[in-house]
Structures are given as C-alpha cells and as structure tokens.
Simulated assay, not measured.
Amino acid sequence: MTRSQNALDGGSIADEIIGYRREIADLSQRIKNRRLQVLALYGTPITLLLLILSWAGLKVFIWLHGDTPSAVNGICFAGVVVLALATGAQFYGEFDSEMWEDSGTSVRELKLELALAEERHVLEIRQRTPPPQDRQASYKEKLPAEVSRLRQDSTHYRRLHLLMQWLLFVSSAAISAVTAWYDPPQPAKGVLIGLGFTVTVITAAAGYFKPRERAFNLQQTADSIQQHITALELGIAPYNASQEKVNLELFATTVEGLRAEQRMREQQLDQPQQGQQQVI
C-alpha cells in the first residue's frame, strides 16, 4: 500500500513539474510570436509609407518632365496594394478580432508571466527535490542521449573535414592539370583563379574551424563516457563498491569532469593560436 501511494505521489509530482515546463515553453513561444506580430504591425505601415515616398521621389527627381516607366509604376502600385492589404489585416487582427492569441498584450507582460512561471517552477522543484542518490540515478539515465549527441557532432565534423580535404585535393590537382593542358593558360585564367580561390578558402577555413580536431575530441569524450557507463552497469572498477550510493557519486563526479575537459578543449580550439599557447 505504501509503495503504491509513493508511486502515485511520484506520478503527481512529475505531472506538476511537466505542467510547469509546458507552461514555460508555451510562454516562450508566445513571446517569439508576439515579437513578430509587433514587428509586422509597426514595420508594414512604415514600409508602405517609405514605398510611397520612394515612388514620389522617383517621379520628382528622375522623371519630373516625363512619364514614369510603366514597369516602375506597376511594381510600385503592386507593392502599395500588397502592403496596404497586409496593414489592414494586421490592424484588424490586433484590434477588431480574436485572431491573435495575445492581441493587445505587450511583450513586457508576457515576459513577466514567463518570469513568474519560472519562479513557480523553481519553488516547486525546491519543495520536492529528491535525495542525491535519486538525482544521480536520473543523471545516469540521461547520459546515453548525451553520448549520442557527442557522437553525432563528431560525425558531422568528421564529414565536414573529409569534404574539405577532398575539395582541397581536387582543386589542387585541377590547378596543375589545367596549367599543363593550356600553354599559355590564357583560355583557362578564370578556371585557375576559381580553383586557386577555392584552395585558399578551404585551407584557411580548415585551419580556423579545425573540424578534424573537434571530431576527435567529441568522439574521445563520447567513448570515455560510454566506458564509464558500461563499467557502472557491470559493477567493475572503479565502480565495484558495495554501496550503490558511492558508485553513483563517483560516476557523476567522473562524467562531469570529462564534460568539463571537453568544454575546455572546445574553448581552446575557438581561441587563436597565440591564445592557445598561453592557455597551455
């Protein structure tokens, strides 16, 4: 009876926390939508006014003593009509209907609602914080997704590195081939310029972004985390203590250390070469 009651209490707590997170996500999306609505509400009539002034300016400064070309008149007239219709529809949606969810609501009010929802979420979490052992066990269950993300990023950078290297190989070989084929190379100057530009850009990009090093670091971190996950599941060293609490605490500490090292390596790769030498 006690277990079933605890399970029900745990389910209700989880539902409440999920409800707060959904409310926060909904408010965040509503703020984004409202910003776009306000931008369009003020930007469309301003654009309409600028278009009308530009149309009049073209007539006054360029075609004052002649007829404005029909193409210019057609484009400007079509733009005025479209912007006028858009302005009318937006003002109707803002003031005369319920088409928009937050019509008449300022972004500041939505931000205040979001801050209050986040505060309620934090207070609820503080009141119902599980013991450290439960949090460490939950942390362990979340790590496979983190390992998968690291491996996906590593694969992305590895493929980017391979693509850049193949483009570099092909462009370098093509420069020699085109130069040898044309003597003198006047008919292929454009091709040679384009190939040389490609080689320069790829070389500079590879040296700046370092996709190979990023792929290696990400794969190394993912493999290390996966190794510790396997050791914890099998109960082998260093997670062979008799108490599960000790193993989970050591596991969380070790994995966080690995993630901190990965973030430090990423920061070092983002720094210029002189800055990397100073850090090292």
Rank of each mutant, 00 (worst) to 15 (best):
D15Y: 06
L248H: 13
I24P: 02
G235K: 06
Q273V: 14
L167G: 15
Q262W: 07
V82M: 06
P132A: 10
V81N: 00
Q277L: 15
R135G: 06
W100D: 05
N73H: 04
Y208H: 05
A78Q: 00
E266M: 12
S70N: 06
A173T: 04
L51Y: 09
C76P: 00
Q219F: 09
F216H: 14
R263C: 08
Q136F: 10
W166N: 12
N73E: 07
L250P: 00
V178N: 08
L114T: 03
L58T: 14
R151I: 00
T200D: 00
L51V: 15
L27N: 03
E244V: 07
A78S: 06
G79W: 04
R259C: 09
V279K: 10
Q276H: 05
F91D: 02
F169R: 11
I24G: 00
N240G: 05
E94K: 04
Y239I: 05
G66H: 09
F209N: 06
H156F: 13
R265G: 01
S172I: 12
E119H: 14
D26E: 14
L168D: 09
G93F: 02
S224I: 07
M99R: 13
S12H: 12
A206Q: 15
P45W: 04
I18W: 07
V107Y: 00
L143S: 01
V81Q: 00
E213Y: 02
Q133L: 15
V72M: 03
N73D: 09
Y239D: 07
Q29W: 06
S171E: 02
L50P: 00
Q262D: 13
P211H: 01
I193A: 08
Q165T: 13
R22M: 08
Q29F: 03
A40T: 08
A89H: 02
V170T: 11
Q29C: 03
P272T: 04
G43Y: 08
V107D: 03
V279I: 10
C76L: 07
V107K: 02
Q226H: 11
Q186Y: 13
Q186G: 08
V107G: 05
F95I: 09
S242E: 12
A56M: 10
M1A: 14
L50M: 13
H121L: 14
N217H: 11
A222P: 03
A237R: 13
